[in-house]
Simulated scan of single mutants.
Amino acid sequence: MSNLLTSFIETNQPLVEKTLHDLINDLEAPQPLKDAMLYSLQAGGKRIRPLYTLAVLKELDIQNEDAIIVASTIEMIHTYSLIHDDLPAMDNDDLRRGKATNHIVFGEALAILAGDALVTLAFGIIARLQNISPDLKIDLIDKLSFSAGAEGMVGGQVLDMLGEGQTLTLEQLEEVHLNKTGALLSFSILAGAIIANVSEEIRSALEKYAFHIGLAFQIQDDILDVEGTSEQLGKTAGKDLKSEKNTYPSILTMEGAKIELQTQYNLAYEALENVQMQNGLLVEFANYITKRSN
């Protein structure tokens, strides 16, 4: 990881952690519910999504005190999806980020409700922002609901479930990943563009970058599920193979998956190059995503 990216993360990750804690801690809600919400929010994680939002603004030299709040709401939605994905009715996992999953600690009912509370809270927080114009808040809520909902992350999870035990084409697998993982990651990048109110040219370039880096992120996840260990990943390694899930290595072979990973990185880089943003944080994030070990 470069000094530029390391410095950025060391500065901003603690701000994300504090904001998440404060937003939940200040709720007038039953304490067991808050405990369950905070348990998964504070279970660790790289915070790639909120950091991406802040990185876009840093690249564009835009400051907005509500940006950290928007970034944190994206992490809330990501965390809700993990809580629900781990449930017995879904992936049935008992380990997440090296810790017992939410339903193992709090029971299935409270885990479901903690996820519900996180996703609904996120939209309310954005609606109440004070330093972003009403038009931009509507744009944020509209794009987030699309990315997280039936045409994005939730729909992708359904496609993933339907594909188990079947052999998908590469195009079908790409559709799964663009929705299940890529949609929310892409929104993280788009959110920075919306807050900055950028030109259509820059917004289009960032959307293209987000598209390709979202695929790259999932390809690397698929590779790590085969090559990584449970200790490295903080979750059960090899679970995709045991569940007969379609992955890039299973369809393209491991060598083919690594070639595709590099292709997606190159396309993401080209998108930034077209708007002279190829020498900063977004490229460093792309390097990190394609070379990470967890």
Rank of each mutant, 00 (worst) to 15 (best):
L168A: 09
I202W: 05
Q63D: 04
L51A: 07
P50I: 08
L261Y: 12
D85A: 03
L51C: 07
L129F: 01
G234S: 10
L190A: 06
E59A: 02
G45W: 00
L113S: 05
F187A: 11
V198Y: 03
A109V: 14
N64V: 14
F8Y: 05
N3S: 14
G163A: 09
N287P: 04
N266L: 12
R96Q: 02
T101C: 11
V176C: 04
I132P: 04
L178H: 02
K239P: 04
T247P: 01
R292F: 13
A100Y: 01
L51I: 10
H177E: 14
A29T: 13
V226E: 11
N131M: 11
G228W: 11
F106Y: 03
N131P: 05
H212Y: 15
D61V: 14
E200F: 06
L162P: 04
D139M: 13
Q264K: 15
Y52S: 13
L206T: 02
R292H: 13
I251Y: 10
E164N: 08
L281W: 01
I259L: 15
K18M: 11
A193T: 09
R97A: 07
Y265S: 10
A271V: 09
A55Y: 08
R96S: 03
T236F: 02
A257T: 10
G124I: 14
L224D: 12
E171W: 01
G214M: 06
E200A: 08
I289Q: 08
A109Y: 13
G214Y: 05
G115T: 05
T247C: 04
K239C: 11
Q262E: 15
A67V: 10
L261P: 02
D85Y: 07
I138N: 11
T253E: 11
L38A: 06
L215T: 05
I48D: 03
Y288I: 14
S230E: 15
K34Q: 10
N131I: 12
G256N: 12
F217E: 03
V283F: 08
P249K: 11
L57P: 05
E201P: 01
G163H: 07
A268K: 12
S204L: 08
P14E: 13
T290D: 05
I125W: 01
G45Y: 03
T73P: 07
L267I: 09
T236I: 08
P14M: 14
G163E: 06
L267F: 12
E17G: 01
Q31G: 05
N197E: 14
A114P: 04
G228Q: 13
A150I: 15
I289S: 07
M254C: 02
R128H: 15
G182A: 12
I24M: 09
L118S: 11
G152S: 08
I223C: 12
I126G: 03
N12V: 05
V119F: 06
I48K: 00
L206V: 05
V226I: 14
V16H: 01
Q220R: 15
A36V: 00
D135N: 12
V176I: 15
L144F: 06
T290H: 00
N64R: 09
H21S: 10
A36L: 02
L5G: 03
T167Y: 07
L110Q: 04
S186N: 03
A148I: 00
G280S: 07
D240N: 11
L118D: 05
R47A: 06
A67W: 02
Q220G: 10
N3A: 13
G165S: 12
L241P: 02
G234H: 04
M76V: 12
Y248R: 03
I289A: 08
G238M: 09
H78A: 05
A43H: 06
G149S: 09
D135S: 13
G163K: 02
